[in-house]
Design a protein around this nucleic acid. Structure first.
Lengths: 140, 140
DNA sequence: ATACGTGCAAAAATTTTGCAAAGTA
DNA sequence: TACTTTGCAAAATTTTTGCACGTAT
């Protein structure tokens, strides 16, 4: 689980400067439990310039602190990531909460796919959509 | 496999008018074997207005003649779809060719996911990326 | 001094909207 | 006549770029 100190540590480790705009963006993303757009952050830190927010979210994303979440309509969001390795998401379509998943495509399925298509498989996108327990209960 | 006549037939069936701009866009998408952006079509049919190309691709997409393809970087493209039901894609990252796949997420995996997360699973995105046989050969 | 990081404003890229004109049932 | 479709231009959205000015090393 990230907190401000651990993000600062990661920035230092990777020789990136600790600056007020970066701290402000870091605080803003830590505030959020689900996914968000750059615009959400822009509104949350109006004291930071537009370009800087874009640059900082991109930086945090490249560092693996943020990851991209694909929504059902095809739009991309960011999310604070608690794991750096390859993983998938289960996104609640009602609130914005996201679960990071261990499950991945079965390697055997990938082999079959390669065999049957002649493609060399190099990657995939996989995201699940649903309704979380809390949202289901509150709608009942 | 679509051709111009079958698209025209579908338009008629659904009470949409057959107009020169729609025919032009239909011809343009039939020309393409892989995925494309609206901008690609815009360039291909400069005689058709910008808004009309957007409206027409959206219409063809809603009719199931085009489907959306998600690229590895998260951008969305269109593609002439040969099947109307739920399916996934295998996209060549080198050329733009796309295979439509029969394979889908194992229902048992969905059940497990629902059980372990408490989510009611309602949908998913799944796209594969790789290098097609032709591109692999030509790069060797 | 040299690198890096920032804000600002402008530019670019992409998609939508309003509307008057033209076409079709 | 009433409804659909179009083109155009303007607007809106979202992201990138250039650059002068600071700030840290």
């Amino acid at each position: 689980m990230y907190n401000l100190e651990s993000i600062v540590r990661r920035l230092e480790e990777q020789r990136h400067r600790i600056t007020p705009p970066r701290l402000a963006v870091a605080r803003a993303v830590l505030d959020r439990s689900g996914h968000f757009s750059v615009d959400d952050i822009l509104n949350q830190v109006p004291e930071v310039g537009r370009a800087t927010v874009f640059r900082t979210t991109k930086l945090l994303s490249e560092m693996g602190i943020l990851c991209r979440v694909l929504l059902e309509d095809g739009s991309l969001r960011y999310r604070l990531s608690h794991r750096q390795d390859h993983h998938h998401h289960l996104v609640c379509v009602s609130c914005t909460s996201v679960q990071e998943l261990d499950a991945c495509i079965d390697p055997e399925v990938l082999d079959d796919l390669a065999r049957s298509t002649g493609y060399q498989i190099e990657g995939h996108w996989l995201e699940f959509y649903g309704r979380c327990d809390t949202c289901r209960s509150s709608e009942a």
